[in-house]
Design a protein around this nucleic acid. Structure first.
Lengths: 277, 277
DNA sequence: TTGACAGTTGACCGATTAGTCATTATTATA
DNA sequence: TATAATAATGACTAATCGGTCAACTGTCAA
């Protein structure tokens, strides 16, 4: 394990307990068994550490949920959405706790708050596309409102379960939320959040990347990886972005190859969007 | 305005913008136009200030909602609940922002976290009693779950509106939530939160006070008040607690007298519970 | 005019923080 | 083994924090 990963893992444990601001670099290095100077060899500041943590987990979270949602049958779609979300959340419960604690306006780095908002909106986008697919035109007037209801319900249940040490039946919780979502989608008529409301809030462009940024990211990740199937797949995918020559089946297979590598989830997500899978 | 009130008002503005931990005493005193020493003449620590703020606003918030809910007709009950909650919330939006930011585990004072939990549970209690009154035995299995759904929905909409500067139609929002609550109450069958779950979480006693504590609080408040109808009412109510002699109508009238005084809302709430109004 | 007094001030204190860098330890190379 | 290159250390700095207290100000009765 690289020193960077060690620091990230151990720091996350402290952040989950005490919060980001309340945890000093000294505490982190003590908890890692390294010196303070060594910390600054891996991260150029404490802020860069929390940046890395949020990027690392949020990209995994979003791409995981997006993949599961895109590849689920309609009958199991809602359940899959909730179950995957909660599962991923509790799999990385330390990170989830940090996210809850520092949610919205506790952190004072402007850039970081913007990043969080961006990820937040990306998650909304996944939820919205699921709703549109499930209920179609019928919920055109209420779908944005529905997204916020789902978010509110999930957030509250997550908070409850993360900070109480109760044993958790994720299956029951997911089933319960499936029922509620169906009720609200099929019978609610009064929407508070409209499309106008959404548009009046978001000015900056959504998390889209240009072809050039995508290529650059692939190059960077390729350099980081050891020789492996994942690395070879990435190289082939890069060529495919530069000049398409492979069949869709091959491209899909290559994407599948890198999907479960923790460091490739985000690129996998971006490439799936790029190739329309 | 007393110096204490000045500090509380001005500090709240800063806390809403920056959060409690991120605001220094120096900033507060600068913003008040007083010296650092003067701050410590009114509050013996920075913690005591946030304590006072939370007590001052939470007691008002809870007693307001409780009163409105207890005195509303069944047909308008849900709407009144939501509308009053949101109205009170946005009337004191600076405090609401502080509450959102520091919710749960950001603050590091153990006593303060306990206090917040207590107020949280008191609000749950108000919500639960409303649900029981509205839907009766029919929701016995799902009522605790319903409380958490309502809380999640309200919390999410509140967050959205407090931190976006959008114009707000509280009537529409309340109507929308009335519809949703009715849908969930009348048709949801799968409850995730059960009575057992609740009981397994709360060990300490709920915010009940003994007769002695109640009398002491009344005495203290009486001393603080100027000569007024409110003060006279309080004195009479104290006697009524010591040895009941007045008719229910008179007691209710006396309670009404003090209900809207900012410093008496909490005592009014406690007395209403004590006298079963 | 004096002196007692309540109210107010801001320089100061000890503790803690993120971040630096000269020094030392370890490893790789020749 | 000797030398160069790299990795790791922890004492140090400058800044900020909550909280204290000797000194100062203005008021009013004597």
């Amino acid at each position: 394990m690289s020193k960077k990963q060690l620091i990230m893992e151990r720091a996350l444990e402290l952040f989950a307990k005490q919060g980001f601001e309340a945890t000093s670099v000294q505490q982190i290095t003590d908890h890692c068994g390294i010196s303070k100077g060594a910390f600054y060899l891996s991260f150029k500041s404490k802020d860069e550490l929390i940046f890395s943590l949020i990027d690392y987990f949020m990209t995994q979270l979003i791409s995981d949920i997006d993949y599961k949602v895109k590849n689920a049958q309609n009958e199991e779609l809602l359940f899959t959405y909730f179950y995957t979300s909660f599962q991923t959340f509790f799999q990385h419960s330390d990170f989830a706790k940090v996210l809850m604690k520092e949610q919205a306006q506790t952190l004072h780095n402007k850039e970081l708050i913007e990043k969080m908002h961006l990820y937040d909106r990306l998650l909304d986008k996944v939820t919205l596309s699921m709703i549109e697919r499930l209920y179609g035109e019928e919920v055109n007037k209420t779908k944005y409102d529905l997204v916020y209801c789902i978010k509110g319900l999930m957030g509250n249940y997550s908070k409850l379960m993360l900070f109480s040490n109760a044993s958790l039946d994720l299956k029951l919780l997911s089933e319960s939320l499936v029922e509620k979502t169906n009720l609200l989608a099929n019978h609610a008529t009064i929407a508070f959040i409209s499309e106008d409301f959404i548009q009046s809030m978001e000015q900056p462009a959504l998390g889209e990347v240009t072809k050039e940024q995508l290529l650059e990211m692939i190059t960077q990740k390729t350099d980081e990886l050891e020789e492996s199937i994942e690395k070879e797949s990435l190289i082939l995918l890069k060529q495919q972005v530069l000049e398409p020559s492979l069949s869709p089946a091959i491209v899909k297979g290559l994407l599948e190859n890198i999907r479960n590598h923790p460091h490739c989830k985000w690129i996998s997500y971006l490439l799936r969007s790029y190739f329309n899978f």
